[in-house]
């Protein structure tokens, strides 16, 4: 996968969540994503950015324009140093929530993107990478 450009953003407040959404929106829009693809990507970004803020106690996001062969897409990486997730399989299930919310964050976001990776350990933070191709 070739990375064409990168924008790193902090996630410290709900305004930062909006900034991450906007960045993903702008680049997906520039790449010519369809309205549905764009909406799915930006919604997934919003869900996970909020998780980073609420569950992870804040962290950072990286928005990247990527290319693989003839395909172009947007990859989003979220990292926090929060409490982490002890049981990832359980956390991915709809309805599971450690804090407020409906617990749709992880499982729901995964359905909205083409590629979804999560690495987390209790006490060692969480890293989530998602890609949506045009």
């Amino acid at each position: 996968m070739e990375v064409r450009r990168i924008e790193a953003l902090p996630i410290r407040s709900s305004d930062d969540v909006v900034r991450v959404r906007r960045q993903a929106h702008n680049w997906a829009s520039e790449l010519g994503f369809s309205p549905v693809d764009l909406t799915k990507l930006v919604t997934a970004a919003s869900e996970i950015a909020r998780n980073t803020l609420e569950h992870g106690g804040g962290g950072s996001a990286r928005v990247e324009e990527v290319r693989r062969g003839v395909r172009v897409g947007v990859r989003l990486t979220f990292e926090d140093q929060g409490p982490g997730i002890a049981d990832i399989a359980q956390a991915m299930r709809d309805g599971f929530s450690t804090r407020r919310g409906m617990g749709l964050g992880l499982g729901g976001a995964k359905r909205l993107v083409d590629e979804f990776e999560i690495a987390s350990q209790a006490g060692a933070g969480t890293k989530i990478t998602m890609t949506r191709w045009k």
């Binding site: 309205p35 549905v36 764009l38 909406t39 799915k40 919604t43 869900e47 709809d94 409906m102 749709l104 499982g107 729901g108 976001a109 359905r111 909205l112």
Partner: peptide, 14 residues
């Protein structure tokens, strides 16, 4: 509600 928003909400499970 925009069509793309409705489609995404259902997929999200909301």
């Amino acid at each position: 509600m925009r069509p793309a928003v409705a489609i995404t909400l259902v997929e999200l499970g909301v």
